Simulated scan of single mutants.
Amino acid sequence: MRLQKVNAVITGASSGIGQAVVSRFRREGANLLLTGRRPELPEGHPDDLYLPGDLADERFVSELAAEAADHLGHVQVVVLCHGFQASSPLAEMTYDDAREVLHSNLLSSFLALKHLMPLAPKSGASMVCVSSRFGMVGTPNQTMYSAAKGGLIALARGAAVEWAARNIRVNVVAPGLTVTPVIEASFQRRADPAGYRRARESSIPLGRLATPGEVADAILFLACPESSYITGAVLPVDGGYTAF
Rank of each mutant, 00 (worst) to 15 (best):
A56H: 03
A216C: 04
V128L: 10
A218F: 02
I17G: 01
R197M: 10
L80H: 08
A160W: 10
A98R: 06
A160Y: 09
R198A: 14
D96C: 11
H103I: 02
L102H: 03
A120K: 04
E67A: 15
L209D: 02
A233R: 02
N105H: 01
H115K: 12
A164H: 06
R26L: 00
V75L: 11
F221N: 05
F84W: 04
G158P: 02
E214S: 09
F221E: 01
L51Y: 10
I17A: 07
P39C: 15
E100N: 13
V101T: 10
F110W: 12
A243N: 08
P236G: 14
A65Y: 13
V75I: 08
T139S: 13
G44S: 15
V215D: 02
D54N: 12
V6Y: 00
I10H: 02
D217Q: 06
A66E: 12
P121C: 02
I183N: 14
V130T: 04
D238W: 05
P46A: 15
K122C: 12
A164G: 04
F84E: 11
L34Q: 05
A86N: 09
F84L: 14
A210L: 06
L106M: 02
F134W: 03
L119A: 14
S87P: 04
E201V: 11
E40L: 10
R200Q: 14
R198P: 04
R99Y: 03
S88T: 03
L209F: 00
P46W: 11
F221P: 07
V172W: 01
A86D: 11
D217V: 00
S146A: 14
R166Y: 09
P89R: 15
I230D: 05
G18S: 13
L33P: 03
S203V: 09
G135C: 08
F134T: 00
N7S: 15
A147E: 03
S88G: 09
V170Q: 12
A30D: 08
P193K: 11
V234D: 10
G138D: 08
K122W: 09
D54A: 12
P212R: 11
C81N: 09
E214I: 00
E162I: 00
Q4Y: 13
M1S: 15
Q4P: 09
L34R: 06
G207E: 10
D96P: 03
A98S: 12
D48L: 02
A154Q: 08
P175S: 13
F110C: 14
M127Q: 10
N7K: 15
Y196R: 10
Q19R: 06
L33R: 00
S146I: 01
Q19I: 06
A65V: 06
G44C: 13
I10A: 05
R27Q: 05
L152H: 10
F244R: 14
A218M: 10
V128F: 04
R157Q: 15
G213H: 10
P212S: 14
Y145E: 12
H45S: 14
D57T: 03
M93E: 15
M117Q: 11
M1D: 12
V75A: 09
D192I: 01
G151Y: 08
L152E: 06
A191W: 02
R133D: 02
K122Y: 08
I168H: 00
E63I: 08
D54I: 02
V161I: 05
V130K: 00
M127L: 13
A191I: 07
Q4C: 13
